[in-house]
């Protein structure tokens, strides 16, 4: 019996008069790939930002593994095993690829000033760990050749992969991906789909915001649809595809009807 990983209860985030997230209730089971879709401005990224602590809630609660995590700061959220990527890629531009991944190990290491200055065994252990595991993750993601290139100079598709690699370095239980295929060509998109499916098969729960319907319908076993801050539909892909409210929200986007698996 799969357990509930995330429970979002009556979550509200208001910016003055704007109701970016309005009484959203979602339950996400462990081990699945869960999709969150909706037209632009529906509140999807805001939802993510509240889940991972970048924004505070106006009201409502969030439970992770049945523990209340509402309004915890981001650096504690990741320690619980919740990692994320961002809609506009937030890489550390003036670091190299390996350096970017190394940050992911921050929560697994503990070198302090004393260790750093005197190169104690803690220091050497931490440095070895970050380099070894960092290169391993780069191998896994297929970026090993770029290890010493500056993140600034990479192509868009590789930058997105690097962001995912960095999130993986934190050894998370669940991965939140915010539009991971935005701006990618079909070849790159297919690669990412395969990669996400593989990660899920290895045990990672994945929550994904996407606009590309092919990605969503291919990967997700359950989907929530947001519109103007409210959840208007939830279910398996086929249900969502044929829901009247969803079609209305996407009025004009005939992709939804035309999609074939």
């Amino acid at each position: 019996m799969e357990s509930t990983l995330f429970e979002i209860k009556e979550l509200c985030k208001y910016f003055g008069g704007v109701k970016a997230v309005d009484k959203v209730n979602i339950k996400i089971k462990k081990g699945i790939i869960y999709g969150i879709i909706g037209p632009n401005g529906a509140g999807k990224s805001t939802l993510f930002n509240v889940l991972t602590g970048q924004l505070s809630t106006t009201s409502g609660d969030i439970y992770f593994e049945n523990k209340k995590i509402t309004n915890l700061p981001p650096y504690e959220i990741i320690r619980l095993g919740i990692a994320r990527t961002f809609q506009n890629i937030k890489l550390f531009k003036y670091m190299n690829v390996l350096g970017n991944v190394k940050i992911g190990f921050h929560i697994q290491t503990k070198t302090n000033f004393w260790d750093a200055i005197f190169h104690t065994s803690t220091y050497t252990y931490d440095e070895r760990l970050t380099i070894k595991k960092g290169l391993e993750i780069l191998e896994r993601v297929g970026l090993a050749d770029f290890a010493y290139d500056y993140a600034l100079n990479l192509s868009y598709g590789i930058q997105r992969k690097l962001e995912i690699a960095r999130a993986l370095a934190a050894d998370p239980i669940v991965l939140l991906l915010d539009e991971p295929t935005a701006g990618m060509n079909p070849v790159e998109t297919n690669q990412i789909i395969k990669f996400i499916r593989q990660l899920n098969q290895e045990g990672l729960t994945i929550i994904i915001i996407e606009h590309d319907m092919k990605v969503i319908m291919n990967l997700c076993s359950r989907i929530s649809v947001l519109n103007e801050g409210k959840k208007i539909c939830e279910g398996i892909p086929r249900e969502v595809q044929t829901d009247k409210d969803v079609i209305e929200a996407y009025l004009g986007k005939s992709n939804l009807l035309k999609f074939k698996k």
């Binding site: 970048q54 650096y75 320690r79 990692a83 940050i103 921050h106 929560i107």
Partner: peptide, 12 residues
């Protein structure tokens, strides 16, 4: 480089 990303990666 990016405070938000740093924090999301666990840096206090």
């Amino acid at each position: 480089e990016d405070e938000t990303a740093a924090s999301a990666m666990g840096v206090e």
